[in-house]
Amino acid sequence: MPGILPARRFEGWGRMHDRVLKYWLIAPALLVIAGTLLYPLVSGLWYSLHEWKLSDSPALGPFVGLGNYVVAVSDDPDLLNSGRVTLIFTVLSVVCTLSVAMGLAVLLSGNGRLEVNARTLLVIPFAMSPALVGVSWRFLLNPEFGGFSALIGALVPGLKGASFLADPTLAMAALILCDVWHSAPYFMLMFIGALASLPQETVEAAQVDGASRIRLFFEIVLPQLKPVLAIAVLLKIIFSLKVLDQVITLTNGGPGTSTETLAHFIYQTAFRWYDVGYAAATAYLLAACMAVFAAIYFQLITERRPA
């Protein structure tokens, strides 16, 4: 009905149409994305097809086709080790982070003063830069003056004075602990939101039907959180696969290569050994891995939820 169209229309800039204007308005954002995302993606792919050792020459070396990729998948025990480390880290950090996050969410989903304040406090770790988190935990885990080290020593006598970052297994545990501490709050908030949107009647019905608290959680609440849980798992997998900052500041991949994750391996290859071509190729392999999970993730969040 033309009669009810608003009388005032945007008349600025002469005869420019709304249809054109909208593209101008998003152009700056598109430019930033192209510069920071698209350009590195394309140039990275180009570098990965070349040999380029910065220690030899600052100029791009000869074209080697898929040579870097062939070496990576067939003949590199160090990369294989990093893949194994990343797999262990990812599986354990996903399971631990989400379990802790779910536990916290159930504990803190109420609206009492204690719960609200505790929630606010718990967001702080997530707000910290991951590199800083690594540095903090390096101090906390110091066997001589670390607070956490002392606490663990008091709780588990066997670990009294243990040098967490010097033992391969303990270093991995420390890395996972630090990651859980950093990322669990984010997923806790996600789960608190999901818990709040749960139909309260199903919970009350189960209470009246006679379910204990444990049954209520595992048989009524958890199954209804499945869609959110699936998204959280995928998101955490993606986060864990690319873990780098904490690795650099906490363990720097050590001791030996026991905590050298793929991202750390790539970083070392490029900026310590200056083998940029090979680093680009392995980075592409990691990106391909993550793309699989990202694709499933987008599938999940865009699909229409059943009523």
Binding site: P199, E201, T202, E204, A205, A206, V208, I220, P223, Q224
Partner: peptide
């Protein structure tokens, strides 16, 4: 108890 919105387990 029978609830207004039934409270069935989906």
């Amino acid at each position: 108890m029978v609830f207004q919105n039934y409270g069935l387990y989906p």
